[in-house]
């Protein structure tokens, strides 16, 4: 080891007198984004998988548009909402696993020894997920447009769709973060993925609620918030500006976000059990 005293000032500096919450959040977010951008290989699958399903189901289920009462002639217009939600679910896993890895490796303890505040850690950590979510949403939108999807709500609607997709991604990322804080292992976070997948399939992901024939399935889908997230996204593509659908979608996404962040905040306090 090279001990270079010339570089080390002998006069001792007082410890830092504090750093703003924004600066802390940005520092943690920067790290999360750097991490995300350096794991490209791991990001390809979550990005591509929803597109593969979109491509397959968009064609395989196109006959569904012949069911009387189906809201559009192009099944892809109906289906394009699904990749956004599915991508958000993948983001939740990425965000959760990243945080869980920090807990498992002791990196969180290292951060806990700095004046870092729990809120900054949580929001900053999810910042990487948000960047990923935005990237995914743009890709899905471009693929949709390229495959013939048209936006009934125009350019403004496309922007609102991107915003809604981001809120949804952030909400799911917060869920992933909460699981990581609660259980502290990557396996536990990944174990929840099938459940997220199930909630997507037990929703109006393939057919509109009123066209689901099995009553029990329709009832489950009607109680499933994912149906309303899809409904909001879908409304911008198919029917133009639908205030109710948008309010429900934003409402559910924000409710998930607020609840997950609230519980995460409490879990973070326990996890950072510093006095």
């Amino acid at each position: 080891m090279v001990v270079d005293l010339a570089h080390e000032p002998q006069t001792v500096r007082p410890p830092a007198s504090g750093v703003s919450l924004t600066e802390q959040t940005l520092a943690v977010a920067k790290r999360a984004i750097v991490r995300t951008s350096r794991q490209r290989a791991l990001l390809v699958f979550p990005m591509i998988f929803p597109l593969i399903l979109f491509a397959i189901n968009g064609s395989a289920l196109s006959a569904a548009t012949k069911i009387p009462g189906f809201p559009t002639q192009n099944y892809r217009d109906f289906l394009i909402a699904v990749p956004f939600v599915q991508g958000a679910m993948f983001v939740s896993i990425t965000a959760g696993v990243d945080l869980a890895r920090d807990i498992e490796s002791g990196f969180l303890n290292r951060l806990a020894l700095t004046p870092l505040r729990g809120e900054a850690l949580l929001i900053g950590q999810l910042g990487g997920a948000l960047v990923l979510g935005t990237l995914q949403a743009i890709v899905y939108m471009l693929v949709g447009l390229a495959s013939g999807v048209s936006f009934a709500s125009g350019l403004g609607g496309a922007l609102v769709l991107l915003l809604l997709a981001n809120v949804i991604a952030f909400a799911f990322a917060s869920l992933g973060g909460l699981l990581a804080l609660r259980f502290g292992t990557g396996e536990a976070v990944q174990g929840i993925f099938p459940l997220l997948f199930v909630t997507l399939f037990l929703s109006s992901s393939s057919l509109p609620l009123d066209l689901i024939k099995a009553t029990w399935f329709r009832d489950i889908a009607a109680c499933n918030p994912v149906s309303y997230l899809l409904g909001g996204l879908r409304s911008l593509v198919i029917s133009g500006w639908d205030g109710q659908a948008l309010a429900l979608a934003f409402g559910f996404a924000l409710a998930i976000l607020v609840l997950a962040l609230g519980f995460s905040q409490a879990a973070m306090k326990t996890r950072l059990a510093r006095r």
């Binding site: 289920l61 006959a63 569904a64 012949k66 069911i67 009387p68 399939f201 037990l202 393939s206 057919l207 066209l211 689901i212 024939k213 099995a214 029990w216 399935f217 889908a221």
Partner: peptide, 10 residues
Amino acid sequence: GGLSRIAEVP
């Protein structure tokens, strides 16, 4: 369950 109405496609 969810897609049973597909059977009604002509």
